[in-house]
Design a protein around this nucleic acid. Structure first.
Lengths: 350, 350
DNA sequence: TCCAAAATCTGTAACGTTTCAGATTTCTGG
DNA sequence: CCAGAAATCTGAAACGTTACAGATTTTGGA
């Protein structure tokens, strides 16, 4: 029965060592194997034994040792969020993390944040995680149409989900905001306001959602018979100063836009500044429809038309998707697209 | 590249299993103990052997199995950032995470994010980590003068660092922004602008930095012979709407402030809205000096006077502090206070 | 040349978990 | 009442690492 009578356990006092399966086995008089199985509802354990073990486990607050499980099974119970750590003003990263945490909370999964610098190889952190098996699943963002990371993880059969879609003939879990619909709605609103010549402040051209947004923009432009005022050389990822300067420059030209679609909230701050630098007024000379993750734009200028992107939701969707993928669910059911709400407006005057 | 074409398991060919100490021992012809020691520069290993082992290890890309180390030694190589996940608009959490990541990057430490809801017990996640030994160190924020978590971790001898100081006679590592100095500088600026009656939009009263900020505010007020216009019932943590409404209310009273000190950037958005709701103008009727983590306020209204708080820096300081604490460095050297830069102004008119 | 001390190296035993291959007990039908 | 099947239970081994207690070799002093 009790083999370990003489061994190491010099814990005769009250100082409770953390209970292990052995502790539980001793307390219940069962073997450690039985205890292990009873706790995970294995079929070959008697109903009463199972209940008894689980009761005791709950009583003494048993929690499986993660290192033990991980060493034995290779399962880490970790989801890794891989993100680039360049300064992103008004970044939505916190919302994403909150969303992921929310989904992970009722599970045994922990969230680990793996950073990389945007000028390094984005594949590097992913490769590290896969090679060292330091997580069960990965969430990535800044997805590209032909994404090395997606290819790598797919080839290695490693579970993951992407924030944003790809276009490389690989089916994989993702969550995305429908930026095509957003851009189309934005153009439509501007058209309804009587605007004729529109500019688009787009994401960087290497990212998938650049194409989505641009497609929606271009198509709606055509549909409403509007023309484009190209806003080149600058993207939502550029610095406030760069966008501001470039916008002012554009506005000072003879042929300037009377409407702008902006892909990001922080960038819109810079847009507005640039417009006003050039001496124009929002709402009268020009209108802006902007996407935003945090609800501050209407406080900047109530004339801005906004579409809210729920990044927190994206986070929990992504977390759920990776976990489902880890559990072996088919990919097809793990792809979701978030349709934008209608464009909101707050008033013509402060 | 040759991907493991046939199904998941049974890779009989070149598909390299991850190397372990055993692999290394076999390759070098040494014992596994010797290899283990050679890799960590133990003194009883011959110089040549050491070099040889390290060379081979580097060649085949050996990386210690974290689960193995953790199970054997109890060392997790994990730092846990504990944070509350309530919606915090314009939250600085991303910056903090970037800062921590930066400091952790050249070390074997990983960052794990442990969330809790503000309405639950903040001690709960801390206790979980300590009890399950799931990290080597903890970073907490929203520090209170008499902080349960600090007491708990100290009593359990668990390494940690706090964002913000405490006042309970316990010495512990911290990093803090000097909010007393900030408030004093802010008041001074407002006094210099000829303002006489000032309001303070403060942090929640339970947090340490509420007291720091309020002390600096009150003292400077006295020093410059100014009076306070109390802005009660609302803190920087309240919703935009709440702050906005409360501010408008205050401004509509007969006795209203002609200057406001604001403890947070997002809250200042609401302040400005409230002021303008009531029909007053920034720069002429009233001035604001605000702290901000992200540099957007001057785009909201160039009249706002700002002091920047570098949260990214705070993050790396905190990370360095916990790691040093884990390494056994004395607490005294791990306390740092960040002095605010001078108040910045951007102009009197848009 | 020899012996002890120093310098190197090594096997075994854990850490806590799950899996494998039985062992034991209970049940069933004849 | 028994053989065999079913139902329960079990110890040993293994995952990769480090600590302990030796084992072996080399060195150096006499």
């Amino acid at each position: 029965m009790d083999q370990d009578s003489h061994t190491s356990g010099t814990d005769e006092t009250e100082q409770a060592e953390r209970p292990t399966l052995k502790t539980l086995a001793f307390m219940t008089g069962l073997g450690v194997t039985t205890v292990s199985r009873a706790l995970k509802d294995a079929p070959e354990i008697g109903a009463e034994t199972r209940k008894r073990v689980q009761l005791v486990a709950r009583q003494i607050g048993y929690r499986p040792n993660r290192a033990g499980v991980r060493l034995r099974t290779g399962k880490t119970n970790v989801i890794s969020l891989v993100l680039d750590t360049e300064e992103q003003i008004g970044g939505f990263v916190s919302d994403m993390i909150y969303g992921i945490s929310e989904a992970l909370a009722p599970t045994p999964y922990h969230l680990i944040v793996t950073p990389y610098s945007r000028n390094n190889d984005p594949l590097e952190p992913v490769r590290y995680i896969v090679e060292t098996a330091s997580a069960d699943g990965i969430i990535i963002s800044r997805t590209e149409p032909d994404d090395k990371r997606v290819r790598y993880m797919t080839e290695h059969g490693f579970p993951f989900a992407t924030h944003g879609r790809t276009a490389m003939g690989i089916e994989h879990p993702y969550h995305d905001f429908d930026n095509t619909a957003f851009a189309a709605q934005a153009v439509e609103r501007l058209a309804a306001l009587g605007r004729r010549r529109l500019a688009l402040l787009a994401p960087p051209a290497n990212l998938s959602y650049f194409h989505h947004m641009r497609d929606g923009f271009a198509e709606a432009l055509a549909e409403h018979g509007l023309t484009e005022a190209p806003l080149t050389g600058v993207t939502v990822d550029h610095s406030i100063e760069a966008i501001r300067a470039r916008t002012a420059e554009m506005m000072r030209r003879k042929v300037r836009p009377d409407g702008i679609v902006s892909g990001a909230g922080a960038a819109t701050f810079a847009l507005v500044a640039g417009i006003e630098d050039a001496g124009f007024r929002l709402g009268s000379d020009i209108d802006i429809v902007s996407k935003q993750a945090s609800r501050l734009l209407h406080l900047l200028r109530p004339q801005i038309h906004v579409v809210n992107e729920n990044v927190r939701l994206a986070g929990s969707e992504l977390a759920r998707a990776v976990m489902a993928r880890i559990a072996g669910k088919p990919v097809a059911s793990l792809q979701s697209l978030s349709r934008p709400d209608a464009v909101e407006a707050f008033g013509q005057d402060g």
